[in-house]
Design a protein around this nucleic acid. Sequence first.
RNA 1: GGAGAGGUGGCUGAGUGGUCGAAAGCGCCGCACUCGAAAUGCGGUGAGUCCGAGAGGGCUCCGGGGGUUCGAAUCCCUCCCUCUCCGCCA
Length: 427
Amino acid sequence: MLDQKTLRQNPDAVAEQLARRGHVFDAEHYARLEAQRRELQSRTESLQHERNAQSRAIGQAKQAGEPVQPLLDAVADLGEALKAAQSELETVQTALRTIQLGLPNLPHDSVPPGHDEADNIEVRTWGTPPSFDFDARDHVELGEALGGGLDFAAGAKLSGARFVVMRGGVARLHRALAQYMLDVHTEQHGYHETYVPYLVGEEALIGTGQLPKFDEDLFAIAGFEPPLRLIPTAEVPLANLAAGEIIEADQLPVGYVCHSPCFRSEAGSYGRDTRGMIRQHQFDKVELVQLTRPDDSYAALERLTRHAEIILQQLALPYRVVTLCGGDMGFAAAKTYDIEVWLPGQASYREISSCSNTEAFQARRMQARWRHPETGRPEPLHTLNGSALAVGRCLVAVLENYQQADGRVRIPAVLQPYMGGREWLTP
RNA sequence: GGAGAGGUGGCUGAGUGGUCGAAAGCGCCGCACUCGAAAUGCGGUGAGUCCGAGAGGGCUCCGGGGGUUCGAAUCCCUCCCUCUCCGCCA
């Protein structure tokens, strides 16, 4: 949610900024509603004031033993008028809130203009894509060859398209990756390890921005009240830990790390990435979430992105970092770095992490605040999130980058302790 | 699933229709006393929102929603959550 004061006082400037990410905001319509709200609210509140005063007078008269009937007559039609004003006000406020919840975040000044990923800006690259003296295979072929380690047919049999079954060494490698990432982030980067529910209520999803707008991207649980959704990312439960809280300044920054499955309906991505496990309905991810002071959040974004990069560096996987342009950013983000890992099977860089600063966008929705030490007053804090990393895609990257001519896959050195000392996955 | 008890401010905890946003205690902040600290005394100390240049003022909030009433933390309905006992269960 955007700052209501800004929205109220400067709707045109908001429209201009939202245009940078390709969002059309009808500032005039909003201003009109806002004017109505103001009028209705002050009318409602003065009626409430009137009622409160009269009621108090009745109470006093009663206590003093004076007759009350004339006073009761005086307030006879107040109730009707108040009810009418309240319901009008509510209508306008609902309309305003609907608009507010549907507005994406304002892009940070440093966000490049553009419509889609073609306009993203490469910030840096690390490592060199490997060259093979044989035809590089993709993870689907490699996984199948490794004793059915990646079994898409089995996934389809159980659950349909975009599901996979992993077996044996590949399944263990997948687990090893997650364990390794958790250990690095807790032991070296100071994040607090967390285990969270994979089903969350609508409030939480509104808090982080998935609802009300992106309902069709989520899996819902049937026949359960109140309604629950499967989390599309651990960012949802992690960030919402701060919902409704006021955090003291000396507690910040807070950093959470969590390994969880993520569930996405992938509505609207029909036909994209249908091969392999690049785009699944269910995938594992190690997620980082930070809560920071507003003046620290951009420095924190740089740190958080580095924390994700370090995993790739230690795995010796080549990658690049791009700054997303306005049109390619997610709904809640003010600025996003994507980390793209080199996939020999596709001979291209593919997203393996997305690190965003949402500034106070989510915090306003969640009522997540910190106490400003100078004013002593609660103010929205800033939230950041980043994958570090997507475990499934990381598995793909390891398989493809570490493949050998004979179909074996070398296990990255840092993962070997998690693999019982094994050095190779063998067909 | 069955039976019962509860949900009040940072915490403990009073409050069963009328100046109650809420006693008291703890905590916290300020001041006084002190060389300093402790103890003590005095004062202050919830959140949201609106109007206003400001001073200031209004409104809302006692788990959520709805209702009764001139007036609800208090009464009624409903949902959620917590606790205890029984059953079941990883």
